[in-house]
């Protein structure tokens, strides 16, 4: 945890890094480059605000919490408001903790959930293979500001989720938008300046 600089959330280093890779970034930014960029992140932790638009509800649900990633496969989403919830994904096991109790889900047994996890985790990990297994993708923009659109391949997931769009700058994810088939959507925005340990 200590002693190592963390490029994702150290803006100065980031800038230096961006300058160093300028010749590449100036050309067409492609998936290999994005994955390589993300692959250098050992761990990250950001605060987020998530807004859910649900057709059945008169007002959107807004949740706040932190999102934490540790290479290679650990992802934790901790929601503080309005209801406490902690989703911890390690390997193939998803642990969901709410004030009602804790339960574990085997991701391999829930393909849709596994794909949703892969969208975020594999992007953060720079794991192109896993992404390609679940989604077809479309990357636009430059290293300094990119947009990755993921379209689910799995029929179960694509029946529920239309697409997932991830925006980022360099190796920092800025927002994740999930559009559901039935019209509902979820927008997760990383709070600026909240990065790091």
């Amino acid at each position: 945890m200590h002693g190592r600089p963390e490029p994702a959330f150290a803006p100065v280093l980031l800038l230096a890094f961006a300058l160093a890779t300028l010749p590449v970034a100036a050309g067409a930014f492609d998936m290999a480059e994005l994955m390589a960029l993300m692959g250098r992140v050992e761990q990250s932790r950001v605060a987020f605000e998530e807004t859910k638009q649900v057709a059945a509800l008169t007002a959107p649900i807004v949740r706040r919490g932190t999102l934490r990633y540790v290479r290679p496969d650990q992802l934790e989403m901790r929601v503080e408001t309005p209801y406490f919830e902690r989703m911890d994904i390690a390997g193939n096991v998803l642990t969901i903790e709410t004030k009602r109790g804790t339960r574990q889900v085997d991701l391999a047994a829930a393909p849709a959930l596994a794909a949703w996890v892969a969208a975020i985790r594999a992007t953060l990990a720079g794991d192109r293979q896993t992404l390609a297994r679940h989604f077809s993708f479309d990357l636009r923009g430059q290293a300094t500001r990119w947009t990755l659109a993921l379209l689910p391949i799995d029929p179960v997931l694509s029946g529920v989720i239309a697409r997932i769009v991830i925006d980022g700058a360099q190796s920092q994810v800025l927002r994740i938008e999930v559009d559901e088939r039935m019209g509902d959507s979820t927008l997760l925005v990383v709070q600026p300046g909240t990065s790091n340990r």
Binding site: K52, V54, A56, L57, I61, R63, M77, V79, P82, Y83, E85, M87, I96, T98, A112, V160, I161, E180, M182, D184, T186
Partner: peptide, 14 residues
């Protein structure tokens, strides 16, 4: 249900 909708398993709840 409301809590479920907000939570991770929202899609299943719906």
């Amino acid at each position: 249900r409301l809590e479920g909708l907000a939570g991770g398993g929202g899609a299943l709840e719906k």
